[in-house]
């Protein structure tokens, strides 16, 4: 295990100040505005420990929700919501036999998160400008602007954004906007003990994911593929790439992900054209009806 040379500068376990550019020690990069950052979630490494869920709740001060047992394997979080910005899914795919592919062959786990889409439908739908694109190319809801109209909620193709009934605002993963500003790696990625969640610059992450995919193919995991990088499932229908993307080993639907989501804003023009044509067509009908009987 390589360690960054700067790590030895901070040997004490109790620090009296924040470490400058801490992400360099934990994720190997310096976070700078103007560049694109994201998550690469490699599900073949996920062990379902939910450290990401806990780290996210702790850092972001999110209240508990869904206290109870669902009976859906170990998934008692059920879905991403206003109060849960990481969600570990558990899929019991069946009994392992000798022919099964390695890596999670009988039990799939995946830590789901906001995808921070390139053409983010929530951002495009938001009428107040509360949702905006940050200097790190991520998508964040400004809590002091949001008026809780809820239009971002059905806009999201992944069912991520949610309105909290506690405060009447929309909430979702911020990709730890505050931490990025302070040079820190997002909480979930830092907490992940197996590096299933990797944080970094998007280009580098996509390259790393392609290498991992090829490596897994070589090692016999023929079904491994990337979801959300350019040209792969998930990055379809005008959405562009997803800044939080995944390496999966079963169909997208297995992980409750849409195979070919679309960009909702692309439907505005045809819809408006058809509607306006109908109104004016009927207005012309009215014009001819009223004119005809005026002449009588």
């Amino acid at each position: 295990m390589e360690m960054h040379p700067r790590v030895s500068d901070h040997a004490a376990s109790d620090l009296d100040r924040a470490i400058a550019d801490e992400a360099e020690l934990t994720a190997g990069i310096r976070i700078r505005p103007g560049r694109s950052y994201g998550f690469f979630t490699d599900t073949t490494l996920c062990i379902g420990c939910k450290a990401c869920e806990v780290a996210c709740k702790e850092w972001n001060n999110l209240p508990a929700d869904g206290i109870g047992l669902t009976g859906h394997s170990y998934d008692n979080t059920t879905a991403l919501s206003a109060d849960s910005w990481r969600h570990v899914m558990f899929i019991e795919a069946g009994v392992r036999d000798d022919l099964a592919q390695p890596f999670q062959s009988g039990w799939l786990m995946m830590s789901d998160v906001c995808k921070h889409c390139h053409n983010a439908p929530c951002l495009e739908a938001c009428p107040t400008g509360a949702l905006f694109r940050t200097e790190f190319d991520t998508v964040v809801v400004q809590q002091d602007i949001c008026n809780g109209c809820g239009y971002c909620v059905p806009a999201c193709p992944f069912g991520v954004v949610d309105i909290s009934l506690l405060d009447g605002k929309a909430h979702k993963c911020t990709l730890c906007y505050d931490r990025l500003k302070g040079g820190l790696e997002p909480a979930c990625a830092k907490a992940c003990p197996t590096d299933s969640i990797q944080f970094g610059e998007l280009d580098e992450l996509q390259e790393r994911a392609r290498r991992r995919e090829a490596d897994l193919h070589r090692r016999g995991v023929a079904g491994a593929y990337i979801y959300g990088a350019p040209g792969t499932p998930g990055a379809t229908g005008g959405l562009g790439h997803l800044s939080a993307f995944f390496l999966l080993t079963a169909t997208p639907e297995t992980y409750n992900l849409p195979r070919a989501p679309t960009r909702p804003a692309n439907r505005i023009a045809p819809s408006l054209a058809a509607g306006i044509a109908t109104v004016f067509g009927l207005a012309v009908a009215a014009l001819s009806l009223f004119t005809r009987s005026a002449e009588r």
Binding site: P154, G159, G223, N256, L257
Partner: peptide, 18 residues
């Protein structure tokens, strides 16, 4: 990609209703 076999994730919603 193998075709979708119609199975869902515990019948949990994939989207959020408005």
């Amino acid at each position: 990609q193998p075709a979708w076999d119609g199975r869902t994730y515990y019948n949990e919603p994939q989207l959020r209703a408005a």
